[in-house]
Amino acid sequence: MRNPLGRFTSVLAIAALLIPLASACGGDDGEDGGSDAGIVIYSGRNEKLIQPLLDKLEKAVGTGVEVRYGGSAELAAQLLEEGDKTEADLFLSQDAGALGALSKEGRLDKLPEETLGKVPAQFRGSGGDWVGISGRVRVLVYNPDKVDKAPDSVRDLVKPEWKGKIGYAPTNASFQAFVTGMRVLDGEDATRKWLKGIKDNDAKPYDNNNAVLDAVDSGEVSVGLINHYYWYEKVAEKGADNVTAKLHYLPGGDPGALINVAGVGLLKDANRDAALKAVDYLLSEEAQSYFSEETKEYPLVTGVTSKVPDLPPLESLKAPEIDLGKLESLQETLTMLREAGMV
């Protein structure tokens, strides 16, 4: 679930080598895996996380399901390479950017209005060809033993008072999606300047969000940039009294308050009837509750609420207004991060 995004350009020629093949429960699929008896799902979500839900999906849809796992960016690249010869019916992506890349190239089919209408407009593709199924919020995590509070904007982290106190995970997919969002919201020059400021402020790089959270919790750094659910998972595991770190949800539509989504898109020439049943199952209360309970992500379907203790309601958050499909410009973000010496 937490795998970094790959590079679309270099992966095109070798995508097939990067994607392990895993079959879900049986079914009567033929050799091509794309027969009318079943559906093929390319999943950018972690097998350990998603397979139990896909087992339930298979029963709910009443057809065979074959699943091919890999990173979301790598799978999107392979789908672009395969074109109309792909066996895939559905693309289940960890992030909106990979879905946006397929939408931009016309590889996704329109979804019914009834399906799209289950999720607020900001959490689905503007072209009506993909829909979010779970949400995650970018937050600042801070150590109250080190600082009284976190700043109200990620833009403030370049100020001298935060020198040597920041933790971040520059090679992680969620950080790269956040930087892409900042590019869309603030522009190329402002984002490049911010990255240089973070680097010059001696921000400490970590391999992943969990490592950032642990560093903040231990006091190694004072503040970190992560997704919200890492903190809630840690609290669920260790108990609130055993976690020092606190979360700060940023106000005012700050780039650091980005709400990104995992989502699903229907491929052109898919086994449409069965694939649409699968999409509708992923938007069912059972599936939405699964994401909430297992990963502490936000359910996105209107009327389904999270039971995670102390999780702020999604509608109460002040996220920036952004077309999530525009997060597809990952290559430009990676170039910018390399120029800043971060990856």
Results as ranks from 00 to 15, higher is better:
2 R>W: 12
5 L>H: 12
10 S>C: 13
21 L>N: 14
24 A>D: 01
28 D>I: 14
29 D>T: 12
30 G>A: 05
31 E>Y: 14
36 D>Q: 07
39 I>W: 01
40 V>H: 11
43 S>L: 01
45 R>M: 11
46 N>Q: 09
47 E>L: 14
49 L>V: 15
49 L>Q: 11
51 Q>K: 09
52 P>G: 03
52 P>N: 13
55 D>S: 07
57 L>R: 03
62 G>E: 01
63 T>C: 07
66 E>D: 12
68 R>C: 10
79 L>W: 00
79 L>N: 02
81 E>N: 15
87 E>G: 00
95 D>V: 04
95 D>N: 15
98 A>C: 05
99 L>I: 06
102 L>W: 00
113 E>D: 11
116 L>R: 07
120 P>R: 10
126 S>R: 12
127 G>A: 15
135 G>E: 08
135 G>V: 04
139 V>K: 05
143 N>E: 05
145 D>Q: 13
149 K>Q: 10
149 K>H: 13
151 P>M: 03
153 S>E: 09
156 D>M: 12
157 L>W: 07
164 G>N: 09
167 G>A: 05
167 G>I: 09
169 A>L: 06
173 A>N: 11
173 A>P: 03
173 A>L: 04
174 S>W: 11
175 F>D: 00
176 Q>R: 15
177 A>Y: 04
187 G>A: 10
189 D>S: 14
191 T>Y: 05
194 W>I: 00
196 K>D: 14
197 G>P: 11
200 D>R: 10
205 P>Y: 08
208 N>Q: 15
210 N>G: 12
210 N>T: 14
220 E>A: 10
221 V>K: 02
225 L>Q: 09
226 I>Q: 05
226 I>M: 04
227 N>S: 14
227 N>M: 15
231 W>S: 01
231 W>D: 00
234 K>A: 08
235 V>Y: 02
235 V>T: 06
236 A>G: 12
238 K>D: 13
241 D>C: 03
248 H>M: 06
248 H>Q: 10
252 G>I: 03
253 G>P: 12
257 A>N: 08
257 A>S: 07
258 L>C: 11
259 I>R: 01
262 A>W: 13
264 V>Q: 08
265 G>Q: 07
267 L>D: 01
269 D>F: 03
273 D>Y: 04
277 K>N: 03
278 A>C: 05
279 V>T: 01
282 L>Y: 01
284 S>Q: 13
286 E>P: 05
288 Q>A: 07
289 S>T: 12
291 F>I: 02
292 S>Q: 04
299 P>Y: 08
300 L>T: 09
301 V>M: 04
302 T>N: 15
304 V>Y: 13
307 K>E: 10
313 P>E: 12
314 L>Y: 08
316 S>M: 06
322 I>N: 01
331 Q>Y: 10
332 E>S: 08
335 T>S: 13
335 T>N: 07
340 A>E: 02
342 M>Y: 03
